[in-house]
Computed example of a mutant assay.
Amino acid sequence: MDETPLWTPTRWARNGNIQLAYDRMAGDGDPLLLVTGLGVSRRWWPDGLCRALAAHGFAVARYDQRDSGESTHLPPTATGSPITALFRKRGEAYTAEEMTDDAVAVLDALGWEPAHLLGQSLGGAVAQRVAVRHPGRVQTLTTVSAVPGDASGLATLRYIRLGTLAKLARMKFPQTPEGDIEAGVALARLLASPAYPFDERATREEIERLADAGVHDRDSQSRQIGARWHGAPISAITVPTLVLHGTADPLIKPKAANDITARIPGARFVPLPGVGHELPAPVWDQVAAEIRRLTTEHQPAV
């Protein structure tokens, strides 16, 4: 029986005074960096999806964004909540440009000069910004359930389902390990895919394994979501781009995917029928195959 761990021990990259936790799967292939969503750790990427990506020829790495997981958490700021951080003007803890540079610091630590990027939710917006700011480091770009990377403040509002946002705002859980678990289960249930059964028992077991407080760390989420982008528009992206979005996403409207696709030259949109703000197991192989198709259709000339 093969008992080789799926992931390497935690490794560290550095961007200035920010320390970034990352790991990678064993095996070789085309380098693919996963950029995770708001507040949560890199371990929220399903292992089954990562195995599917590896089976399609990718070397998979993932990292914790600043203010999440094992990476550096910044001091408290007067940001209120993630919702108010979207819309109020105030001094920001850091910029969206600095968050994109974090991804490049991880690529440097991995020794990946260029790499493919896959970002989900906030991670999709960050990945778009990396492709704008550091085009030479990105071979292809895939965004999932994301808003346009250059949207901010009130411009973001048009893409968000306010009813779901209100439900998120009403969620209150104690700052304890048990509270972390209950918050994670509640979040997973809220964002689940309507066309696929929600297995609460399996979800709870997985979230107990994750032990991630980021799902209800409002201070860290506020700093992440409040980081403003001051760079060029996403229409400046020149790398091959794939846009994936669940047709039943309860948080981000598919309009966001349509706008990203329309504004990035040559981008291709693939809707995921019945999928919510997550990637359920039945679509893992499809997602991996679509990303492999993107890379093979746009192989650089030899």
Rank of each mutant, 00 (worst) to 15 (best):
R218P: 00
R209H: 14
T176E: 08
K167S: 13
P240C: 01
G179D: 10
A211M: 07
L165S: 14
P174V: 10
T238P: 02
D180M: 03
A166R: 15
M171R: 14
G214E: 10
A213K: 13
R209P: 08
S220N: 13
A211F: 03
L242M: 07
L210P: 05
A232I: 05
S235V: 08
D199F: 02
H230M: 11
P174M: 06
L168Q: 12
P177W: 09
G184C: 04
E208Q: 13
A192P: 08
A186S: 15
G163S: 05
D217C: 09
L191R: 09
I207G: 04
A211G: 05
S235Y: 06
I207Y: 02
I237W: 10
H230D: 14
G163M: 02
G184M: 02
V239L: 09
A166V: 13
E205T: 14
G179W: 02
P177T: 13
V215W: 06
A213F: 02
D180K: 00
R209D: 11
E178V: 06
L187C: 08
T238G: 08
D217S: 08
L190Y: 04
G179L: 08
A232C: 00
A169G: 12
Q175K: 15
T241G: 01
L210R: 15
G226P: 00
D217A: 11
H230E: 13
R204D: 03
I237Y: 06
A236C: 04
G179P: 07
E205L: 14
R209C: 08
H230Y: 08
E205Q: 15
V185H: 05
Q221A: 13
E182C: 07
L187K: 07
S222R: 09
G163K: 03
G226Y: 03
L168V: 05
A236Y: 07
Q175T: 15
G231S: 00
I237K: 12
H230R: 14
V215S: 15
I234V: 11
S193W: 12
Q175Y: 07
A236W: 12
T241A: 10
S222P: 09
W229P: 00
P233C: 01
P197Q: 07
A211C: 06
T203C: 11
A227C: 08
A211L: 03
G179A: 11
L191N: 04
A202W: 02
T176W: 04
D219Q: 12
P174F: 03
R189E: 14
A183H: 00
L165E: 14
L190F: 03
R223Y: 06
A213M: 01
R170D: 10
L168D: 01
L165V: 11
E182D: 15
D212G: 01
P240E: 05
W229N: 01
A169C: 05
G163I: 05
K167M: 11
P197F: 01
E182Q: 13
G179V: 13
R201P: 00
V185A: 04
L165Y: 06
A166C: 02
I207E: 06
